[in-house]
Nucleic acid binder design. Structure first.
Lengths: 216, 216, 216, 216
DNA sequence: TGTTAAACGAGACGGTACGTCACGTCTTCGC
DNA sequence: GCGAAGACGTGACGTACCGTCTCGTTTAACA
């Protein structure tokens, strides 16, 4: 889903170059000034665009930053490493790496904060950012089940509940480590976190083949 | 640590009632208007106080909200329930309950977002909010070790690393569930989360008495 | 003289209906919104015409309003009533009637105000509006002289100076009454004004036949 | 009557210097840029004042310019020259001199134009500018009657009507000469105009002593 | 019991960004 | 190839808060 205000059908079409320039300028401004220091006038200037052009396409600062930050997470993908542990470590490390970038730090928490009082914004964040990552959890589990590392789901409702739980644990832990504790989620941390998670998964399911779920 | 600006020794003393009124007004404004809608002028009006009075005591919006939110977490305490699982469930549920209050939702994420670009603010948040919870992790572990549910720590450095990891996982997961997924962290969720966590703990330590670490 | 931008010789000819529609829309907008509330975009919409079309024909708001207002004065003409007093009363009353229309009120003073800093505009106003009225003064005097109500001019320079003075007095007085004092220049006022003017004219010339210059 | 927004009784008092600086800056901007080029932001900058300060005291551009222009007419006064003609010539010449100043040219017509659609503004102009001049007509007539140059008034309603007429003729003629015809109302023009006016006055009243009403 | 020094309310102050509006120009497409 | 539709850069608008300041007015501790 897009946060952008839809364009008209007739008349002069919108400049296609402007969109990319604006989002890049938004990220640059986030890095330099942070969320509260970011002004739409400044973003427009950086993008070489008039302030009005910006308001024609986005409703406000929140919507703009959601789109700018969402693009950062587009590169996230699930590596097929051959084992559940390696898959988790890979994607968690990717996620942590993106989160460590200053434009993500400044922008993500801020729009999440705003979304606490703005349901439309929360929906937009969910569509643009959150649910793209939840997909990784589902794929990873399916692969692990195919490999026999995890037992197949029996009840679809339980399956969804578990996926949500795993997602909250993974995303929440990484975000907390990176943005609240403000310490690097480096390879060592990711390994320890993954070991904890897989230990919990094995303990709360009936592993068909316990040997396959050992961390490498 | 306090965010308040220290008062002078001589002259008319500060009104003691004003502080409480201001913090209460701040929370009320957070509930009604959210972070970005909250203005210090409005807080002053709600508190029946002049704007100047407010600026004499706090440096700005960030510091004020940190104090206002920090008070919410003062009531958090570790219940002594007799088992690690029950202790965890108890404190996680308390934490989730506090986080579900709108003044916490609006305020906490916002000051965390601001702190991404403001180290002094991050330090203040750490002192006023975060580290008070970390204490609970240390106490809970000590109790579990005394009960024999967890093995004693051998290396103090490893002990600290593990405590940090547990803390990031617990706090991050609950925050993500409550503020990002925006779903209630009710008793059932807390149970499933606790089971996952204890399973992970048991798998990554050398349990002295495996029987004691079973979830109830 | 026209304020319109001349059209090209080749290509598709301009719509003749559009001009009238635009000027009528301009007057309608003047009535509803006044000068400062009038926008060219709104005029274009009212006229069912694109903004571009409007800019192809007039250089800007000032020029457009000059043309729109000038049309109002096209109907002014000197009645041949048989006496100087009746002629003056007739034309003054016509003038006052036109000035009382809201599109004239709003538009005329505004373009005059703009012309204080814009010599080209002043020239345009003079050509389109002012000098058409000055003609009435010259004609009226010629008729009165033919009738013997006024002595013939001896010095052409003095004649021109006197015509200018009369014109300033007539036009200025009516405009002031209508637009500044904001009271109706009704028949009674016109009569009193005309009596004053003719009294002055007789006193400052050497009347050949004083009896003929009595107000009716 | 003042166009200024009234100040509060309590709190920090308004800077007294700012008012004068703002009005002077307004006149300077009128001279340089004219009415339509004048912006409140520019006036504020010239006055060394924040834009908000300006909006705290005046409701808008119209009100500000009315006050700025009104000050120009404060110096107008009726000279006691010993004869009606000399009195009229004196005050008309003063009036024409003020009107010839570019800040008056630009400002006066513009606010009159705006007042065509804004009754409150018209009232403000009447109070601040117009009625101060009407006083001169009344004083001049009273003096002329005391000297025996004009007959005393019998009907107060007629007296008022006549004063209004004279005022419209005097003010309107000078304004038209200066701002519409855009020619200087110099001493020669003032003399010719005064002769015309006094001739009219004598013709439309019953002079008690015709000899006294001769122009000097 | 005064003195006194600071806190207090009120609100003006210089700033800065806001989000909107109209300007006058341009670019595209349809008739 | 005109004209409608509308995006574009520009710049002023009037508003809202910011954080500071300047007042006159309490108010409590100290002399």
């Amino acid at each position: 889903m897009q946060s952008r205000i839809p364009a008209s059908r007739t008349g002069r079409p919108r400049s296609v170059a402007a969109d990319a320039a604006i989002l890049a300028a938004t990220r640059a401004a986030l890095v330099e000034l942070g969320w509260s220091g970011l002004t739409l006038g400044d973003v427009a200037t950086r993008a070489g665009v008039a302030k009005t052009t910006l308001y024609r396409r986005w409703a406000g600062k929140n919507e703009l930053v959601v789109d700018a930050v969402a693009e950062l997470f587009d590169e996230l993908e699930l590596p097929d490493s051959g084992s559940l542990a390696a898959d988790i470590e890979g994607v968690v490390f990717q996620f942590a790496t993106i989160l460590a970038r200053p434009e993500a730090k400044s922008g993500l928490m801020a729009v999440l904060a705003e979304s606490q009082c703005d349901d439309a914004l929360r929906e937009r964040i969910r569509d643009s950012i959150v649910n793209r990552q939840k997909r990784l959890v589902l794929e990873g589990r399916a692969r692990a089940q195919a490999r026999g590392e995890l037992p197949p789901e029996t009840d679809p409702e339980t399956a969804a509940r578990n996926a949500d739980l795993i997602f909250d644990v993974v995303a929440g832990s990484v975000v907390h480590r990176t943005l609240v504790s403000a310490e690097q989620a480096d390879a060592a941390w990711v390994q320890r976190f993954t070991a904890l998670l897989i230990g919990g998964l094995n303990a709360t399911t009936q592993p068909t083949d316990p040997a396959a779920s050992q961390a490498p």
